[in-house]
Design a protein around this nucleic acid. Sequence first.
DNA 1: CGCAACATGTAAGCGGTTACATGATTAC
DNA 2: GTAATCATGTAACCGCTTACATGTTGCG
Lengths: 175, 175
Amino acid sequence: MDAKSVCLGLLSLREATGYDLRKHVEASGDHFFAMGFGSIYPALATLERQGLIERVDKSNDGGRPRKLYRITLSGRAELKRTLSSVEPSSTLRSELFAFLYFAHLAPPQRVTQILDDRLSQMEATLKSLRETNASGASAPSNAKFVNGLTVVMLEAAARYLRENRKSLESSRAAS
Amino acid sequence: MDAKSVCLGLLSLREATGYDLRKHVEASGDHFFAMGFGSIYPALATLERQGLIERVDKSNDGGRPRKLYRITLSGRAELKRTLSSVEPSSTLRSELFAFLYFAHLAPPQRVTQILDDRLSQMEATLKSLRETNASGASAPSNAKFVNGLTVVMLEAAARYLRENRKSLESSRAAS
DNA sequence: CGCAACATGTAAGCGGTTACATGATTAC
DNA sequence: GTAATCATGTAACCGCTTACATGTTGCG
């Protein structure tokens, strides 16, 4: 699932500009997929060239320079083909995992600081996800399902970190 | 945290060959970090050139062609520097998330099949992680902590998927 | 004897990240 | 008026993935 597929997928849910797509993935805390503008705009350009998406705003004379895209029939077909063939792995990756794995070599106060930061960031993401799901805003898709999955995983992680962090912080860095 | 840093980190735990490192990340279900041989061997070559790791086997005459590496003092220092400066994100990424997000466009029986596959793969990983942690094998590091974190997150995910999958599978693909 | 596992490496290609560059609109 | 947000795009670089290439050891 590369950037192009994800853009196509998001456009299958609703019309959007490149900026909208960025806000969408950002709002989900960059879970499920992270993309910057540098990935999105080239992807949209390619998708339009391939006829998988099209501009929905005909005349932008005078108006602000925005490009609103819509998925085409062949785009929808292509997306289905992709979803039929990809073999999604269930592995979860997190930079935090890698850091914690070697935390015994990091300065103890930095471990503490990073745990504090990440926990409060997790809380913020959880709050945002719960609000999104409470308002029935994401009706047309499985966003609710994935948000719910993210919530239970983040909850489990946050609980574990809070209950077990002492064992990390008490081990001191060997010289 | 690129491949080089992770190799360096793993070598800070114990001496290993490139093959060992691959087995190590593979055993953890490619959680925390995924690397193939094509990432590992070039990384090790670079690290050795930089004096951050060194060969521990002097004479491999006649023996099988294996290169056992050990971290050096300057390697340990470099790793600490890296761990002091990285800002690990707490975002979790999974291909499965992306697939599920657009699952309404995938063939229903494929959704079912993928959920079955991923759930049994999760169970296998959970079993393996629990066994690893039960045997006190990973004493020198925080592997136990990270494995424990992975376990609670996978448990939460598996439970959620089992309890809520019907809502995904009942929605049918629109043409 | 043959297959699986052990073991290392190279090279091309691709895709994403990062940094840069620009400009309009809205809110204070 | 000026700062933040909206909005789009380019280009170079870097590093990972993939595929290929090769040889050994141990087991049945």
